[in-house]
Each structure stands twice: as C-alpha cells, then as structure tokens.
C-alpha cells in the first residue's frame, strides 16, 4: 500500500537540491580540467622558479622535478628542488 502511494506521488530519483550538487561537481571538474597545463607552460614555470631560487641558493637543475598533483578536492603544484649549496650567510639587501 505504501509502495503504491510512493509510486503515485514520488519518483525513483533521489530528492534534494541537485543544483547544489551540480555546482559542486562542476567546480571540482573544472579545477582539474584547467590544471591540465601544457608541457611548454610547465617548462616556463620551472625556468622561472630556477631563476628566483638561484638568487639565494645553488640548486641541482637536472634533478629538479615539478608537477601538478590532484587529490579529492584540490590541485597542488609540487616541486622537488635539490639544493647543492647556500650562497653566503643570507642574502645582502641592497642599500637604498
């Protein structure tokens, strides 16, 4: 009897606001889609990072790794940069 009533007035689809579900799923999928950066761009990011860090320390550019990592709700830029030596005792700031 209850099933018959459910059939008449309800539906087999889950209830609740599916628009919120859609928005949430889209935000995640687009984050991943957009994170598919071309190898050329990754190479440029890598070179820029080398450029900045080289001002402060000597790094092993051959062994350096940089990549994007995805998990359930975020995308991270992960870099592994072996340091061979530091440049002096800290960096001298230019006088004004």
């Amino acid at each position: 009897m209850l099933d018959a009533l459910k059939k008449l007035f309800g539906s087999s689809a889950p209830s609740g606001r599916s628009s919120d579900v859609a928005a949430q799923r889209l935000k995640f999928v687009l984050l991943n889609d957009r994170a598919n950066v071309s190898p050329e761009i990754m190479e440029r990011i890598k070179n820029d990072i080398i450029h900045v860090i080289a001002r402060y320390m000597d790094i092993d550019t051959q062994a350096m790794e940089i990549r994007l990592e995805n998990d359930a709700n975020s995308v991270a830029l992960v870099a592994n940069i072996p340091v061979s030596s530091m440049k002096g005792h800290g960096v001298k700031l230019k006088k004004r």
Binding site: S19, D20, L30
Partner: peptide, 16 residues
C-alpha cells in the same frame, strides 16, 4: 526547476 533547486541558475553558472 531553478526555483525547485533542480537546475543551475545564472548566478551559480556565472560563479563557476
């Protein structure tokens, strides 16, 4: 459908 919460509205699409 937007009112019932079963369809994305312009504001949320704009936000995405």
């Amino acid at each position: 459908m937007v009112k019932d919460g079963t369809m994305l509205d312009m504001t949320s699409i704009n936000d995405i």
